[in-house]
């Protein structure tokens, strides 16, 4: 399996970090798809300036996490970038809970 992976997908330079990143996004989309098939999401208005469905909130959480990381990298460099990850996690909870 590992040989097949290295032989056929080695040109993509996969790392476990990027695999985890894409895996988490794919898993989130899959979970939301199943949830929406079972119980369709209704837009709701929270502290975000627009009414949002579950999918909107996932999109906004991912985009704001990327934005926070880029802001951190631009202002403080690559050191202590885990700080941006912690802030992103808090923001994602706030978006999903009351957004």
């Amino acid at each position: 399996m590992a040989d097949w992976f290295t032989h056929h997908l080695g040109w993509m330079y996969w790392t476990w970090q990027s695999a985890l990143f894409f895996g988490a996004i794919m898993a989130s989309i899959a979970v939301l798809t199943v949830l929406d098939l079972r119980q369709p999401s209704v837009p709701r208005k929270g502290w975000l300036p627009i009414p949002t469905t579950r999918g909107d909130r996932l999109f906004l959480a991912i985009m704001s996490a990327i934005g926070l990381h880029l802001l951190w990298l631009g202002l403080a460099g690559a050191a202590w970038v885990a700080g941006a990850s912690v802030l992103s996690a808090f923001l994602a909870v706030a978006i999903f809970w009351k957004g």
Binding site: Y13, F21, F22
Partner: peptide
């Protein structure tokens, strides 16, 4: 998606 994933992977390396 495949090209985008590849670009993300490239961006994490010095090549």
């Amino acid at each position: 998606f495949v090209p985008m994933m590849t670009v993300v992977n490239y961006s994490l390396h010095n090549i």
